[in-house]
């Protein structure tokens, strides 16, 4: 009897059909859209994506994603274009410079036979200015990129660290959290501000002096420009050395570092960090071996 009731219940449970209220998916999706304000969100986000992803329409992308047939053929190309943007720009500038040099050589050929030596000078000026302007456009783009990146990095760290510290403490890494001292935060912010407010202007002044010094053979200020450039390298090296020093003094970072890690770190720092890598590599080595 028990068995029969059990089997009957089982069959009834399986075969019993109930009305499904979720068949009309489109309406539900629309309702959800309105409730969550997705259309407004997409409208707002178009402002940010328009520059880099001009060919991607977010609302169609969203609809495609819901219905399941999303198309990502163009995405890879766009990403490549984004990363290669600066390189492509530089190559185009190189082509322009080539054209300018060809024009220069033609005009120089014509004007070399003339007695008037001013023509040659003027030709030189024009070509020099054109090339300098071209390079300067690229250069100022690069400088703006550096400034933006530095500010972004500092801002990112400033906003990340409180959350990170809270997470570290809650997950039990109290010792690690305590190594991130206020001094470190100050050092991070200070170095970011230092680079964008002191070093970048120094680089710009050095570049301007370098341009001026090439205008005439009589006026020699190329040494000054060289001094600015080398001082920038030295200041950057010293600042980063101080930073690594603070890091080593404040943290118990070095406790778990063995010889292999120290050597690898030194090699990576020396070879990958441009300009000041060699200086910094020695410092890192010294700090890690303490």
């Amino acid at each position: 009897m028990k068995k029969i009731i059990f089997v009957l219940t089982f069959f009834l449970t399986i075969t019993y059909s109930i009305t499904s209220y979720g068949t009309d998916t489109n309406n539900i999706i629309k309702e959800q859209e309105q409730n969550l304000g997705i259309t407004e969100f997409i409208k707002e986000s178009k402002k940010y994506t328009e520059e880099t992803f001009s060919d991607v329409d977010l609302s169609t992308l969203y609809k495609d994603a819901i219905s399941g047939d999303i198309n990502v053929d163009g995405a890879l190309g766009t990403i490549l274009k984004l990363t290669g943007n600066e390189v492509a720009h530089a190559i185009r500038s190189l082509g322009y410079i080539l054209v300018i040099i060809i024009i220069h050589s033609i005009i120089k050929n014509i004007s070399d036979g003339l007695e008037n030596s001013q023509i040659g000078e003027m030709t030189y000026y024009v070509v020099y200015i054109l090339i300098a302007t071209l390079i300067m456009t690229n250069f100022s783009e690069m400088i703006n990129l550096i400034r933006e990146t530095t500010n972004n990095l500092v801002g990112f760290l400033n906003s990340l660290l409180p959350i990170l510290l809270a997470l570290m403490i809650t997950t039990g890494n109290i010792v690690t959290a305590s190594t991130v001292q206020p001094v470190l935060l100050i050092a991070i912010t200070l170095i970011g501000n230092f680079i964008s407010s002191v070093l970048l202007p120094l680089v710009l002044i050095g570049t301007a002096l370098g341009i001026i010094s090439k205008i005439s053979d009589k006026v020699q200020i190329s040494k000054l420009s060289k001094f600015f450039k080398s001082s920038v390298v030295w200041i950057l090296g010293i600042v980063l050395t101080i930073f690594v020093g603070i890091l080593s003094l404040e943290g118990t970072l070095t406790s778990s570092v063995d010889g292999l890690t120290a050597k690898t770190t030194k090699a990576i720092v020396t070879s990958t960090i441009p300009v000041v890598g060699k200086l910094l590599g020695e410092t890192v080595d010294a700090v890690l071996r303490l």
Partner: peptide
């Protein structure tokens, strides 16, 4: 030329 140099500064 002067403008270019001043712009960089």
């Amino acid at each position: 030329m002067l403008e270019t140099v001043i712009q960089i500064l």
